[in-house]
């Protein structure tokens, strides 16, 4: 019976992981930048929702849209005025740059909001429903559903809209896309903006589920990376598959081996994937 609850918990955690990783996977797949400031963007999303709830009493689910928009604009500016300048430098320069941005954003947040633990806590945050032995918390279930909706929305956006097609074109071949009249710099900025916006949404949900601090981002960056990689880079449904896989592996692993092995399991999966099949579960085998 416990086993069932553990699997449900794992799937719900997986939904949250998927939500975190959609943005990172999109940015990585299109611009070839591994955004090490991704966790910091999630953190900014969490604080946006927290302050809107605390100061204006706006419900976290309503402020998802505000959080998305805020981070969208922020991400657009970051890519346009910072990352676009080095995007063709050696790959580790972009890694270094985003790590610098991560430290910078974290420190600004820490100076502005202190390191105190905070949490967005609407009245229903601890509620859930149960059938038999199994309990399902509402907020986690919502995060799960939202991440599925967002993955499909992103799929439709990338396949059907003109901007989406431009993004896919740039991700395949920058020079060819430019010859077709696509503004590459702007497309990169838009991609990063969408990725940041999605990170903001993830942050809003996370802020309801766990404590918020300026330093919370680091672990989310790494987990988003693992999810994006395990699921399959450059695939739209990769984050969903990777998220559910990692969520289940982590929950089942800590249930059977002990909670202190959770990190070892996550990073073990990371290193094994890199060595055995760097293209991930959904990725094609040829490079």
């Amino acid at each position: 019976m416990f086993e069932f609850q553990v699997i449900i918990n794992g799937l719900l955690l997986g939904g949250l992981y998927a939500l975190m990783a959609i943005g990172m996977s999109l940015i990585w797949g299109v611009t070839n930048v591994i955004n090490l400031a991704h966790g910091a963007l999630i953190m900014l999303g969490a604080y946006t929702t927290f302050w809107l709830f605390k100061l204006l009493n706006i419900d976290p689910f309503v402020s998802l849209a505000i959080s998305f928009t805020t981070l969208f604009v922020f991400g657009f500016l970051v890519q346009k005025y910072i990352i676009n300048f080095v995007i063709r430098a050696k790959m580790f320069i972009t890694l270094l740059l985003t790590f610098g941005l991560d430290i910078l954003i974290t420190n600004v947040a820490q100076t502005a909001w202190t390191s105190n633990f905070r949490q967005t806590s609407p009245a229903y945050s601890a509620n859930g429903f149960s059938f038999g032995f199994i309990t399902v918390p509402y907020v986690r279930l919502s995060a799960f559903i939202i991440s599925i909706i967002l993955v499909f929305a992103l799929y439709i956006f990338l396949k059907k809209t003109k901007t989406g097609q431009a993004i896919r074109a740039v991700s395949q071949d920058i020079d060819a896309a430019r010859l077709m009249g696509i503004n590459v710099a702007k497309t990169f900025a838009l991609t990063f903006a969408i990725g940041s916006g999605l990170a903001g949404v993830a942050g809003s949900m996370i802020g309801v589920l766990m404590p918020i601090t300026p330093q919370m981002g680091g672990i989310f960056t790494l987990k988003s990376f693992v999810v994006a990689l395990v699921g399959g880079l450059g695939t739209i449904f990769g984050p969903l598959v990777g998220g559910l896989f990692l969520g289940l592996a982590e929950t089942l692993g800590s249930f059977h081996l002990g909670a202190k092995y959770a990190d070892i399991i996550v990073f073990g999966i990371l290193v094994l994937t890199l060595i055995v099949k760097p293209t991930g579960i959904l990725g094609k085998n040829d490079e």
Partner: peptide, 15 residues
């Protein structure tokens, strides 16, 4: 802000 800023500036101006 020193380390973050230094990293960003170095990556852009002094790779």
């Amino acid at each position: 802000f020193f380390f973050g800023g230094l990293i960003v500036l170095t990556a852009i101006f002094l790779p």
